[in-house]
Simulated scan of single mutants.
Amino acid sequence: MAGVSTAGKPGKVPAVKTPVNTPLNSPAQDWLQAELADTFDEDFELELEDAQLSLEISRIYKEKHPNTIDRHEYFHALIRMQSELIKLQDWVQYHGKKVVVLFEGRDSAGKGGVIKRLTQRLNPRVVRTVALPAPSDREKSQWYFQRYVPHLPAGGEIVLFDRSWYNRAGVERVMGFASDEQVEQFFNDVPEFERMLVRSGITVIKYWFSITDEEQQMRFLMRIHDPMKQWKLSPMDLQSRVRWEQYTKAKEEMMARTNIPEAPWYIVEGNDKKRARLNCIDHLLGLIPYEPVPHEDVHLPERVFNPDYERAVLPPELYVPAKY
């Protein structure tokens, strides 16, 4: 099957190294080889961002990241972790657990990328992503946490917040959308709010994706020169460059005042996107004591054939044109 070579060019999929205790031609080995081949195709599409860049920006970016993880090694580790995420999902659903994971960080820090890889093979009815827009006038008049509460998980669900109630400690504070009194009230309330969630049986996990000033500048330039990524740039994002130091001070106070034992912060070094994704997923898997759960054997039932049934011929205009 055609795929991507480790150099990022079209070519044959490299052979998967066989684990010590895995027999050659075993079903597990065949499955892993097939999954790796499929993933090279799928993730090549996800990684097309590099191909969309101007050649000069792409060259500069690669010079800044000479030691990035090998593509084959990255995909192999990602598939293994994604198979573990399926086990985690099954355990959460089977035992009716409730999990909330917050992803915070500067603009372009890589939050969306890790969420995309986390959810790529999971059931969207079990694992949901929440990315709320700016609050409406009505929501601005509510209790601050009120608009987040409806999105919290029920039993058997995992909710991933792509930005969360910590907007008040970051963008709202720095951009002047919240008063000093509102920010102070938030810092007083959020530890108890999260303790309430934990007491109600919700596991609360908080990640901050950390990148350097230089790395954010490079990623913004990449988005400016990439027509498929320009939608990610908003006037607010551009202002975050101007106010880098203000965001840094806001982050430091946020960490100091909201890092509680019941819901601690975990910082992900994000300058290398691929390593950040793998490190975050691996860490998340290590935080939750999931284990295999029983599954019923699945058997495909025999199709019922009716000798008197004839499939209707549908008009050709109902079909999508076969252009490819």
Rank of each mutant, 00 (worst) to 15 (best):
L46T: 14
N306Q: 09
I57G: 03
P289A: 06
N25L: 14
L197R: 01
A131T: 10
L132M: 13
L132T: 05
P264G: 15
L32S: 01
Q216M: 14
Q230Y: 10
D237E: 12
E73D: 12
M236R: 07
V16S: 05
L152P: 00
D107N: 11
P301F: 07
V100C: 01
K12H: 11
I288M: 09
E215L: 04
T203V: 12
Y144A: 05
V92Y: 01
V4N: 02
R117H: 15
V127R: 00
A7E: 15
K229M: 08
I202T: 08
K97P: 02
L78S: 00
R71I: 14
E215M: 06
Y266F: 15
Y309Q: 10
N123F: 14
N259Q: 15
P294W: 06
L285T: 01
Q182F: 14
V159D: 00
G112D: 05
E269A: 11
N25S: 06
V20L: 13
F209D: 00
R71N: 08
P301K: 08
S58Q: 06
N167T: 11
I288E: 03
W165S: 00
L85M: 13
S164N: 10
R147I: 09
A15H: 11
Q82V: 11
H225P: 04
S5F: 05
R241F: 09
M218L: 09
T203E: 04
L78V: 03
D308S: 15
M236Y: 02
V242I: 11
R138A: 10
E296D: 14
Y266H: 11
S54P: 04
T212V: 11
G96V: 10
N21C: 06
E172W: 02
I205K: 01
N188P: 00
K87Y: 12
L314M: 14
P301M: 06
G110Q: 00
G156I: 09
Y61E: 11
L221G: 00
I288P: 03
P264Y: 13
V92Q: 00
R173N: 14
K17P: 09
L221T: 05
L88E: 01
S164Q: 07
G8F: 04
V298E: 05
P315Q: 12
R223P: 04
E214K: 13
G105I: 02
F209N: 00
A134R: 15
V174E: 00
E35A: 12
R59C: 15
K17T: 08
E269T: 05
E47Q: 10
P153H: 01
E104C: 06
R80V: 02
R168D: 07
F193A: 08
D162P: 09
V293W: 07
R311V: 15
L88Q: 03
I224V: 15
G105R: 02
E104Q: 13
M218A: 12
W265T: 03
H72V: 04
D50E: 07
E84N: 03
S26V: 09
R117V: 09
T248A: 11
P10L: 09
W91V: 01
N188Q: 13
E192C: 08
E104L: 13
F75Y: 12
G156F: 07
I86A: 12
